[in-house]
């Protein structure tokens, strides 16, 4: 039940943002459209009802967005910018294995998209059976799985598990 409401609310927000106006017409049609979209798709988007209303997960999501968008992004941007500006171009590129321990799809996607969105690292592939992400790294500091985990995805996993697992 809650998943239908949450997904419906999500749809309604998208509808109003895209329309760019809030008149009675927008609200009425928005409600109808989001109800239909939610009935069709909520079951494929959310599997566990109880997770949706868990307020702690929402809190962790907001905390993660704040942490990621400020500290993590700034640090990574500065690091890559330095490498670009430096005339000696101090890079040591390579693809490394990074293990992941998340259980749900959303958590795994959050971790890998966070890695990709951070300058300097890009997820090129993932192995679902071995639970390994293949990550292209602009400056390879280590190739051992436990060390790459420490360097690249430890913080992301900490949050992803609390938000989605």
């Amino acid at each position: 039940m809650f998943r239908y409401l949450t997904i419906g609310l999500f749809a309604f927000t998208i509808y109003i943002l895209f329309s760019g106006s809030i008149t009675l017409y927008d609200i009425l049609t928005g409600l109808i459209v989001s109800a239909i979209a939610s009935v069709i798709l909520a079951k494929t988007l959310v599997k566990e009802d109880s997770k949706v209303i868990d307020i702690r997960r929402l809190f962790w999501l907001i905390a993660y967005i704040l942490h990621y968008m400020t500290i993590i992004e700034l640090r990574a941007h500065l690091d890559v910018a330095k490498r670009i500006i430096n005339p000696r171009m101090p890079i040591n590129p390579g693809i490394v294995r990074v293990p992941y321990k998340t259980k749900t799809d959303y958590a795994t996607v959050l971790v890998s998209n966070s890695i990709t969105n951070t300058p300097g690292t890009v997820v090129v592939d993932l192995d679902e059976d071995k639970k390994i992400l293949y990550v292209h790294w602009i400056n390879v500091k280590a190739i051992e799985p436990d060390k790459t985990y420490e360097y690249i995805s430890k913080t992301f996993e900490k949050y992803a598990k609390k938000i989605f697992d």
Partner: peptide, 22 residues
């Protein structure tokens, strides 16, 4: 495709349907 693409596609599919109605 991979798990990442599949999960993101599900979300995008949902937004496409809402936006097309709008």
């Amino acid at each position: 495709l991979s798990l990442i693409t599949k999960t993101i596609t599900k979300i995008i599919l949902f937004t496409i349907i809402v936006v097309s109605a709008a």
